[in-house]
Computed example of a mutant assay.
Amino acid sequence: MAVGTHGTGRTSGTGRTGGVRATGGAGDQGCSGCAGCDTTTPWAELAAEMRRIKGDTELSYGKLAQRTHYSRSSWERFLNQKQLPTRVAVEEFAAAAGTDPGPLLLRLERSLAHETAARAAATAQDAEPAPTPAVPAARRTSGLPGLGRPLGLLAAGALVGGGLVTVLHRAARLRRGR
């Protein structure tokens, strides 16, 4: 998936020049839960700048697809913040539009750093241990006394696998006449 769902700023409604209005997503309205975020995310800034350039140069998604190695639908996803573009995509976009890729690449790097930090913050929040629900004794047993369910299943699988290897080895010896 694209790079996470954090700050995607899902949008709807596009004009002839590719303008986009937010529908309440985090991207254009600010970032929820990230330290140091201002009113827009770096990803929203990158997408807005690419849409501005697309409009100024009168490039359609079809023309972008013809001039780059990316499809029309890929450009729609990149410019409407459904998927973070790759470095190569940004470079090809700049070449197709006849602009300097430097500012766009800088925004892309900031977007990647922001998404990584947001993902780390979300992971840290998810790392808090959740209370373990009580499991009935009948469901707790693994079939092998003293072993937890995952380890018990692993041990049972090893026993079955070992038995299968033994049977196949004996069958091969019988075929060879030993």
Rank of each mutant, 00 (worst) to 15 (best):
M1H: 12
A2R: 08
V3E: 01
H6C: 11
H6G: 14
H6V: 09
H6I: 12
G7H: 09
T8Y: 07
R10Q: 07
R10S: 15
R10M: 05
T14K: 10
T17L: 07
V20N: 04
R21N: 11
A22C: 15
A22R: 05
G24A: 01
A26S: 06
Q29W: 03
G30A: 01
G30S: 05
G30H: 04
C31N: 09
S32M: 05
S32N: 12
A35M: 06
G36N: 02
G36Y: 00
C37W: 08
C37N: 08
T39H: 10
T40N: 06
T40H: 11
P42K: 06
A44Q: 13
A44W: 09
E45T: 06
L46V: 01
L46I: 06
A48Q: 03
E49G: 08
M50W: 01
M50K: 11
R51L: 05
R52W: 00
I53W: 00
I53K: 05
K54G: 00
T57V: 02
T57D: 00
E58D: 10
E58T: 03
S60A: 07
G62E: 15
Y70A: 10
R72N: 12
S73A: 13
S73L: 09
S73E: 06
W75T: 10
W75H: 10
E76N: 14
F78W: 09
L79K: 14
N80E: 02
Q81K: 13
K82Y: 08
K82Q: 13
L84G: 08
E91I: 02
E92V: 13
E92K: 12
A94H: 02
A94T: 12
A96K: 04
P101H: 02
G102L: 07
P103E: 11
E109R: 15
E109C: 07
R110M: 10
L112W: 00
A113Y: 00
E115S: 12
E115P: 00
A117N: 11
A118H: 15
A120V: 15
A122M: 11
T123Y: 09
T123D: 02
A124G: 12
A130D: 03
P131T: 00
T132W: 05
P133N: 00
P136G: 13
A137M: 06
A137C: 08
A138V: 02
A138T: 04
R139D: 04
R140G: 05
T141R: 09
S142I: 03
S142M: 01
P145N: 09
G146Y: 09
G148Y: 10
G148T: 15
P150E: 00
P150S: 00
L151K: 08
G152I: 07
G152D: 01
L154P: 04
A155S: 15
A156I: 12
G162W: 02
V165M: 08
T166R: 07
V167N: 05
L168C: 13
L168F: 07
A172L: 11
A172W: 14
A172S: 15
L174D: 04
L174K: 08
L174P: 13
L174W: 13
R176E: 01
G177C: 13
G177Q: 08
R178E: 00
